[in-house]
């Protein structure tokens, strides 16, 4: 259920490359968020709030905290980045659907590009708790954008890093990395890693990042007939389903709303192989 509250800033960290990690003390009257869901965060001086996906949700000493990771890209995020410990921030959520997690313990392949890491990190923590095997692909432009590397490494069975500047991991795009890995997996079909068309061990992919990256990843994963979920974004005014501003167009030409039908979608709605 979406509810409104004013949450206290417990901690704010300015990371490299304009990323900000905002930790708020959660209001336990609110519904706990699931990976993939987002909140509207209202900066004081903007007209409308900003949709930001949940990056983490955890408890310390019987208190619940919610964490948002965002990059400063405009007026709204800039103002949010200026918040200080103890400030109160109006928020409402949790909004939208969440990443479906299959009942069987199949391998989860997470592919994040840039700030697409935000919701996938939260998903990884949940998959880890449920003892899923996690193959994490994480690509950024500049190596200083890599966030939480050590924690992600601890959550992942396998971690693949790509940077466009080549200073960490493999130089290039995460899509190339994913393509190569899928190629390797294909030759290891017998190990049931990725391509087992017969059995139940076909993995599930979760993708979040720039549109062009999502498209390329889906091209690869859907070719391999891998169930793929993508998280999309759009401009949004209300988060409550009434402004009707947040539409995305499916490959069949249907208009879906990020806040109602999304933000997580079955990739086949948008891309096809």
């Amino acid at each position: 259920m979406i509810t409104y509250s004013r949450l206290k800033v417990a901690h704010i960290r300015h990371l490299k490359a304009g990323y900000v990690l905002l930790t708020l003390l959660y209001d336990n009257q609110m519904t706990p968020p699931q990976p993939g869901q987002f909140f509207m965060l209202k900066p004081r001086n903007t007209i409308i709030a900003r949709p930001i996906s949940v990056h983490n949700f955890f408890s310390v000493l019987k208190k619940n905290y919610i964490e948002f990771l965002f990059k400063v890209v405009g007026r709204g995020t800039e103002e949010l980045s200026d918040m200080k410990k103890g400030d109160m921030l109006p928020v409402w959520g949790p909004i939208g659907n969440s990443f479906p997690i299959p009942e069987d313990k199949r391998t989860a392949v997470l592919i994040a590009g840039g700030r697409g890491i935000a919701p996938l990190f939260f998903l990884a923590t949940r998959l880890f708790e449920k003892k899923y095997e996690i193959h994490f692909f994480y690509g950024v432009k500049n190596s200083d954008e890599l966030i939480h590397l050590l924690r992600i490494k601890n959550l992942s069975t396998k971690l693949y890093i790509s940077t466009e500047d080549g200073k960490k991991g493999k130089k290039g795009f995460v899509t190339n990395l994913f393509q190569d890995a899928v190629g390797n997996y294909s030759s290891q079909v017998k190990e049931n890693l990725l391509f087992d068309y017969e059995g139940k061990k076909s993995p599930v992919c979760y993708v979040c990042g720039p549109d062009i990256m999502i498209e390329k990843v889906c091209d690869i994963s859907l070719t391999g007939r891998i169930k793929t979920y993508i998280s999309l974004e759009s401009h949004l005014a209300c988060g409550t389903g009434v402004c009707l501003g947040c539409t995305v167009e499916t490959r069949g030409g249907r208009l879906l709303h990020i806040c109602k039908e999304g933000p997580v979608f079955d990739a086949e709605e948008f891309y096809c192989k």
Partner: peptide
């Protein structure tokens, strides 16, 4: 409704 962008602040 319309396709493409629908909102701008």
């Amino acid at each position: 409704g319309n396709r493409g962008h629908r909102l701008a602040e």
